[in-house]
């Protein structure tokens, strides 16, 4: 715990706001407000990511979570409905499942290395570390980019392909341009809605 007091206060404030925002979202039936609060949740998460020394991730999250994802959900609400149906009765089963899962997960963390521990496995393995290796082999200031594009190049190629697939899927689901009939026969005449 070598963080300055101010940082710790900011972290506590951020975490409290994160929890509060999420509980509010869970209780809310107004979908518009829930979507806006999800954007705020993303922003707060991005704030904590910055304190966790991951600025790349933080501003991706700010641009994606608070920008694009919020817009997409608002667009969906514009195409469907604005308000969720009020629940008919309180069902205890989901709450039981969630609390049980939470207790199991907390039990699992008891063996985890402590926050910021320099002797944790993640900081001692692999040896030599990516930082030492990329200094010798790639010599880029931003080690995150070096790992992303070079050491884990296959992974990133796969992720890019996933994004391509998702984009194609959205086109197939939402774009309703009929094909021009060929030889007087429309091949999609019966299948399109």
């Amino acid at each position: 715990m070598t963080e300055p007091i101010a940082t710790r206060l900011i972290v506590i404030l951020l975490l409290a706001l994160l929890g509060w925002t999420e509980v509010t979202i869970a209780r809310m039936r107004q979908l518009w407000a829930a979507v806006m609060l999800t954007g705020i949740f993303s922003f707060l998460g991005a704030g904590w990511m910055l304190i966790l020394d991951a600025p790349d991730v933080a501003f991706t999250e700010a641009a994606v979570g608070a920008g694009i994802a919020t817009f997409l959900m608002l667009a969906t609400l514009g195409l469907t409905t604005r308000e969720a149906k009020s629940p008919t009765a309180f069902k205890p089963l989901p709450l039981v499942v969630v609390i049980a899962t939470g207790i199991v997960l907390v039990y699992g963390t008891l063996d985890m290395p402590h926050y910021g521990d320099r002797q944790a496995h993640i900081h001692t393995y692999p040896e030599p570390s990516y930082i030492t290796k990329s200094n010798a082999e790639i010599q880029l200031p931003n080690i995150v980019t070096a790992i992303l594009a070079s050491y884990r190049g296959y992974d990133t190629l796969g992720e890019t392909t996933v994004i391509l697939t998702a984009g194609v899927g959205v086109i197939l689901l939402l774009r309703n341009e009929r094909r021009k009939p060929r030889d007087g026969v429309d091949p999609t005449a019966e299948s399109t809605t």
Binding site: D56, F59, A63, P141, N142, V144, T145
Partner: peptide, 14 residues
């Protein structure tokens, strides 16, 4: 993105 925070994913979104 090679020198500071950034890269293709963030740039594409922005």
């Amino acid at each position: 993105g090679d020198f500071g925070p950034g890269g293709g994913f963030q740039a594409g979104v922005i």
